[in-house]
Design a binder for these strands. Structure first.
Lengths: 248, 248
DNA sequence: CGTAAAGTTGAATTCTTTCAAACACGGTGG
DNA sequence: CCACCGTGTTTGAAAGAATTCAACTTTACG
């Protein structure tokens, strides 16, 4: 754990993260169940991390990668003068920390927004995993390309969409990633994110995000109850934010 | 070729694209030379495509992916009202068209800026390739993650950098991707891109890009000779654009 | 040599930020 | 149980950045 300072290890939960019930965006989704037991061997550990704690910071060299079992995290980069941009919100089931060069240090920081539970895998064994189970390699490629698609969408948003569109886009994206259902949902949980985090994700000012959220609230698309954003009408948000309707 | 309308096939050049001399960013970079001959079998074809021709458009279903052998291309997305954002410039050696879902249609368009030569591979054989040569799978993962890193950088640029910084960032990025050397270079070729393309890549207006380029020109960082942008001082551009200095 | 595409410039407008100050809520400790 | 504190939210006014509109110039190319 030397490379992961502020990290506290706790007893392993009963449910192994491989079977993360939320959404099977893991490396092992395509493995036949018979082989799962073998795959689990590659797991290194499970961690619990508190809200506002860093899993790692820009520049850290990490020799593991992770699947989020529970909790919300953000991956962000900072410029010299402190400007911050949130690259993506990492939700339960997401894979994080698999970088370009397995030796190289991370180019962004990973911070828990809520208390989170992570499942860690050793990087040095990754290549062996792929050699033994080519499907894992294919799955990693798939996941990586899904991530790429997400970044492409966000790039269009930050580059060519208005404040209103960007925020609607972000909220709809998060909603559909959390609830990839088709039927209208009534029981969505409020997002554990602050307006400042929205601002840093869409490339706007906190103040301007606040004003824009007010407009969305007046339109009945969202609700802001006790410091939480609650999506009321995800379809309308997606429409307003020109979100490509293929996130399902 | 049915899915690739405006595409003209021409006689195969003598040099196979596998040995693309520019930069070995191909899938086969890590294969031992003995095995290369086998890998070449996966190649489907080679195409030549003229300037301003599309390789494919948003929504097209393509069953190949490509390595650029020669030429500059752009990958872009368009919003309903015509706003365009260039996701990335694809340079010789780059891999394009490997999408999330191998069946799904492309979520962006690919357009040649200059006459280009491409090497095509069949997607349906990709999985077999990976199974046979796990190194190819690993290489695909590496390439995909490099692409991700590129998108992350651009996201920070569009989200949190000023006009001047964004443009400096873009030009420096292109420069270092084209000339990944460390020593100062004196013989860099001008970029075959218009100011409108710069604008659509950094998320600004053509007019504002023009004004900003003038400032960079006055600073001596670039030169704009006969409709081409020529980088004069890549290091200064990278510094000004806060480009992470790890593109080598 | 004429035309179309690309580049350039100015002025007015719009969008977003900055600065500054309140306000609200949740948790803490007395 | 209440005062207090800190974090997060809200609002106004002024300044700044980028866009829009519109015209004009330059260049490449047939």
């Amino acid at each position: 754990m030397k490379h992961l300072p502020k990290l506290s290890v706790r007893a392993q939960p009963h449910t192994p993260c491989i079977t993360c019930p939320i959404r099977p965006r893991t490396l092992f989704a395509t493995l036949p169940t018979r082989e799962l037991s073998k795959a689990v061997q590659y797991r290194l550990n499970q961690y619990a991390i508190g809200a506002k704690e860093h899993l790692y910071r820009e520049g850290d060299r990490i020799d593991e990668f992770y699947t989020i079992f529970e909790g919300w995290m953000i991956l962000y980069k900072t410029l010299r003068d402190g400007r911050r941009l949130i690259l993506r919100f990492a939700l339960p089931g997401d894979l994080i920390g698999l970088h370009t060069d397995f030796q190289a240090s991370s180019r962004y920081s990973a911070l828990a927004l809520t208390p989170s539970v992570l499942c860690a895998f050793g990087k040095e064994r990754f290549e062996a995993m792929v050699a033994e189970h080519p499907q894992i390699g294919m799955q990693a490629i798939q996941l990586s390309m899904q991530e790429t698609a997400l970044y492409q969408e966000r790039l269009v948003a930050l580059g060519r969409k208005s404040a209103e569109e960007r925020i609607a886009h972000l909220l709809a994206e998060l909603f559909y990633r959390l609830y990839p259902h088709t039927e209208p949902l009534h029981c969505a949980a409020p997002f554990p994110i602050t307006q400042e985090e929205v601002a840093d994700a869409v490339g706007l000012t906190l103040v301007h995000v606040n004003r824009t959220l007010r407009r969305l609230r007046e339109l009945g698309l969202i609700e802001c109850a006790n410091r939480r954003i609650l999506v009321q009408d995800a379809a309308a948000l997606a429409q307003l934010g020109q979100l490509d309707p293929e996130y399902a």
